[in-house]
Design a protein around this nucleic acid. Structure first.
Lengths: 313, 313
DNA sequence: TATCCTTACGGAATTCGTAAGCATG
DNA sequence: CATGCTTACGAATTCCGTAAGGATA
């Protein structure tokens, strides 16, 4: 048994049980992967994959268990490297952040700039994606942390720490009729075409919930995956925008007016996630604390040890 | 990085930082071990061992951390094999029990015989030693479980499950003056020479505690590591015996009389220990339950997941 | 027929053991 | 000077890539 064999079966599963793609992803030959997997199966004395003729169609029962433990072995092996690099140079290393548009654009710039000041030798990288992709990148080890409002709390492999809460606001062009109301209502809002986020982005679930609870059917004319697209179309007069409050900048967005909507939609919690069971570098803990002062090294370590349970703000 | 390198550093530490002995234990050449360790150090970019000239004198700070994680990697790799063998033949395998004399002689025979009836295909082995050796065998993976009254609860690497409780009794030759008293006292006992266990065996700590609490200094004339030696010398009239109650057999020990002493010494708890973080075969869970019905598979799994805390009977 | 896994084989790389060298106590 | 780690080198083993073969959808 060797690490390579374990990597091969993990990647094969990740690539949807396709040896060819697994080999490509690992920059090696496909027959090599095939052979190593068969040798591991022979050594362990159990078949890991169910094969129909020469196709791999699923994991066997033992294969599922073997995969689980193999992933733990590989995670610990990665930890070994991280532990060593922590000592090699406590101030240097690489740090990858997976995140969504809204976080990258409005929440992270401050944190990233402070972090770079504190750790100039750390090679920082950002990877943008949907909340699901963010979760996947952290689980696959492509990213060290993931930041998003949606989805993160739903993966048992991840520890999704609540970082901050925020509300939506409504954006309209200047002189829009809604600006006359002293306090806006959902009923009033639903009379206009609406421009907001795509499902699965930036609190869209909470927006839908609020309308459904009132029995209203809003007319969503544009579902975007980022706030800047929404703002652009509100400026064009396509409809009324619903965005995260932090996406509005009075100085920059002169062609828009902001209407408070905190009372209309449930509060949203943005989370920062790390993979359970991995070793975090010292500067990673500092990043978490820069992002949210509540996430001290101590409290994060406690949460990492504390098994499955989540905690809320 | 490969498994062999991790095994080499683990064994080197186990052998007291002696490469030569580590190589011998692993049936390989000493230069090979040296080279592989240096290559791992080079790959990780940190020194694992502190060398004075050509002697290894201690672990470096990073070395201590690396060792910890390396042990987890190797434990998980062992788990992988165990998981596989669980599927290969659910009824077959090997099972090693580390235990002390008293347990092996008086507590385990029933359990072992029931176990062998249930799992005739499992290759069962017993390894006798001191409580400390028992703990060591479980930690090193030489044994799957360890059974003893002393020491086991003191190792953070082990989960020491309370299995049953027992008391000491006093053994004397027939017609001994102590037989005239209706209820024995520590004061009465301390007037006679005493034959009992060696320190660190079978509840000896509890015996000492009881005498110290009363300000008594018993005259221990023989400190044995097993009950049979104690009984033999009590029969010879060397002194009064204090042994585990289960060690007295009315039919077999015709030359001895038993005096209840449960009120004199604290109750003892015998424990069965497994190493934390390892995968237990199905039959191992059954062994635990045969030993103590309280140790159901469910409760043991809960305890294994539940981190550090112990629980008492 | 295109995709995808397995087998076969030769070359490259790694690992391992023996022999020799050198530092420590 | 005995113990114990390192270096050097050659042999054995393992690993990996190319080419060819066979199965499935």
């Amino acid at each position: 048994m060797n690490f390579q064999q374990l990597r091969y079966i993990r990647e094969t599963v990740r690539q949807g049980l396709n040896l060819t793609e697994a080999a490509a992803k690992l920059f090696t030959s496909q027959p090599g992967v095939s052979k190593q997997i068969r040798e591991l199966e022979h050594e362990l004395g159990v078949e890991i994959f169910v094969r129909r003729g020469k196709r791999i169609v699923s994991l066997t029962l033992p294969g599922e268990q073997v995969l689980k433990v193999a992933e733990r072995v590989l995670d610990e092996a990665d930890n070994l490297k991280r532990v060593a690099s922590e000592f090699r140079d406590i101030e240097a290393g690489t740090f990858a952040i997976a995140t969504t548009h809204t976080q990258a654009r409005y929440a992270l710039p401050r944190v990233v700039s402070e972090f770079r000041k504190k750790y100039p030798k750390v090679h920082l990288s950002l990877h943008q994606g949907t909340p699901q992709q963010v979760a996947g990148m952290v689980i696959d080890g492509v990213a060290d942390v993931g930041v998003a409002t949606e989805a993160l709390a739903g993966y048992p492999e991840l520890l999704a720490l609540p970082a901050y809460t925020w509300s939506h606001c409504v954006l309209v062009p200047p002189k829009h009729p809604l600006l006359r109301d002293s306090a806006i209502t959902l009923e009033a809002l639903s009379r206009y075409p609406i421009v907001t986020y795509d499902a699965a982005f930036t609190g869209r679930t909470h927006i839908d919930e609020a309308f459904v609870a009132k029995g209203l059917k809003p007319d969503i004319v544009l579902a975007a995956s980022d706030s800047d697209v929404i703002k652009a179309y509100v400026e064009l007069g396509l409809g009324v925008g619903i965005v995260a409050a932090m996406a509005f900048d009075e100085d920059r967005d002169r062609e828009l007016r902001r209407i408070d909507a905190a009372h209309l939609f449930p509060t949203n919690t943005s989370r920062i996630a790390v993979k359970r069971g991995i070793f975090l570098r010292g500067f990673a803990y500092d990043f978490l604390e820069l992002f949210s002062p509540r996430l001290s090294r101590k409290s994060v370590e406690r949460a990492l040890k504390g098994g499955q349970e989540m905690y809320e703000l």
